[in-house]
Nucleic acid binder design. Structure first.
Length: 420
RNA sequence: GUGGAUGUAGCUCAGUUGGUUAGAGCGCAGGAUUGUGGAUCCUGAGGCCGAGGGUUCGAAACCCUUCAUCCACCCCA
């Protein structure tokens, strides 16, 4: 029995890796434009960071973390998300002493122990941004725009934006009371929601059961209970999005599964993703820094699922690979010996170049060149070699021309001159 | 953690009520063309039929267990 990758993990092989490369390149580019800087935090952290940051009662902490004890009996957890670690790093390095806000982005693997399904894995990758040290609504607008710009970069437009505000510790409790009172007598709620009613009543709002949805549709709406500050904040976020002509839908039942969210929360979804339909989502988390540290610093951010983005790119069916520029075909032993040097010179000059290593027939080598999508084929024949020449074949047109051995690089620079 | 579907060649899949040497297409290797790719034709390599156990004279097929994949629930990116 050969060893296989653990459940819910994936190898990223060529040509899929080209696509990942392309995605990462564009994420960096978008962040450069928005002036977000990369931060890299450890893959594992003290378990306590997530327990306190994400919330002891959340599903992530309750049942989805990869937690283990290291050799010194410390409880360690593979990070299930990126926000808490970034906040931790911010506090640990006392970045609040610098000009605020700090705008970060990160890339990397996250780990959650769940049953895999479409768009959901045990090791998955996120691209995320975090802005720490500002409670300006324009910042919330900015991160949403950044995310949208990013996915549109791929020519993908089949998405929709949902937003809501879940208030602050000042105004949320009064809403929760109203909600509990309303839901209290509803015996028809599903089993899950009966439980949620006790632990986290907000979650009843986004239950998928039709019965619960029916009940919820009549429930009090959180945005009616926001305090004046939260109301003002939310309306400014909406105004900002409108000003940028960014379509969004206000969804009063949108709540998030992580405890640290406050005020604006949002999800950007696609119908092409199956049941796990969020491409990226996030919101404001003004309470997190105080929860894991001792400073009350406002922050906002989002995380984007790269595997999900990749699924959408698959639909778009684009080519991300770089074709080979030159393939060297040799005829005879002398030519093969000569090719070693020519190949090296081409590569040093910056061309992508390759050859066959198996001493195969010319026909086989040409076939190989074709399969590698080589733009040109440099054919080194024993006869021509004596005259100090090689043949350069254009693999698209099939035309071939004779080039002096010491003029190869010059010829290549002509041939690959950027088209006007 | 729960439910459903599926595991046969590198890939996509056939395989009759259980019957002896397990097939196709694509891909791969070689050749037709001993010095020139894409088309065509020929030849070839490649399988512990996911793994383990059971039933049977006989199992890819039936039963049990297990692992994995896909889909959905829970939840989330």
């Amino acid at each position: 029995m050969t060893i296989k990758a653990p459940r819910g993990t994936n190898d990223i092989l060529p040509p899929a890796s080209f696509k990942w490369n392309y995605i990462e390149k564009h994420a960096h580019e978008i962040c450069r434009r928005y002036n977000y800087q990369e931060i890299r935090t450890p893959i594992f952290e003290h378990t306590e960071l997530f327990a306190r940051g994400i919330g002891e009662a959340t599903d992530i902490v309750q049942k989805e973390m990869y937690t283990f004890t290291d050799k010194s009996d410390r409880s360690i957890t593979l990070r299930p998300e990126g926000t808490a670690p970034v906040a931790r790093a911010f506090l640990e390095h006392k970045l609040y002493g610098k000009a605020l806000p700090k705008k970060f982005f990160y890339f990397g693997p996250m780990f959650r122990y769940e049953r895999p399904q479409a768009g959901r894995y045990r090791q998955f990758h996120q691209f995320g941004v975090e802005v720490i040290g500002s409670d300006a609504p324009d910042v919330d607008v900015e991160i949403i725009t950044l995310g949208i710009d990013f996915i549109e970069e791929f020519g993908f437009e089949d998405y929709y934006v949902e937003i809501n505000s879940i208030g602050c510790p000042e105004c949320r409790p009064s809403y929760l009371e109203e909600l509990k009172t309303y839901l209290a007598g509803k015996e028809e709620l599903c089993e899950n929601c009966q439980e949620r009613l006790k632990t986290n009543p907000l979650r009843v709002l986004d239950c998928k059961s039709p019965v619960c949805q029916e009940i919820v549709s009549e429930a009090p709406v959180i945005t009616d209970y926001l305090c004046p500050d939260c109301q003002e904040n939310f309306s400014q976020v909406k105004q900002g999005l409108e000003k940028l002509k960014l379509d969004f839908k206000e969804v009063p039942t949108l709540v998030r599964g992580l405890d640290y969210y406050t005020n604006t929360v949002f999800e950007v979804k696609s119908d092409e993703l199956g049941a796990q339909d969020a491409i990226f989502s996030g919101g404001r988390y003004n309470g997190l820094l105080e929860e894991i540290g001792d400073r009350d610093i406002p922050a906002t951010g989002f995380a984007l699922g790269l595997e999900r983005l990749e699924i959408l790119l698959e639909e778009a069916a684009r080519e991300f690979g770089d074709d080979l520029q030159v393939y060297i075909t040799t005829i005879g032993e002398e030519a093969e010996a000569e090719s070693l040097d020519i190949l090296h010179r081409l590569r040093q000059a910056g061309y992508s170049a390759d050859r066959d290593y198996g001493g195969r027939s010319v026909g086989s080598q040409m076939k190989d060149a074709d399969r590698k999508n080589s733009r040109y084929c440099l054919i080194i024949g024993s006869e021509e070699l004596k005259a100090g020449e090689v043949n350069l074949r254009d693999m698209k047109s099939g035309e071939e021309e004779s080039v002096p051995l010491d003029g190869i690089l010059e010829q290549m620079s002509k041939v690959f001159e950027p088209e006007p």
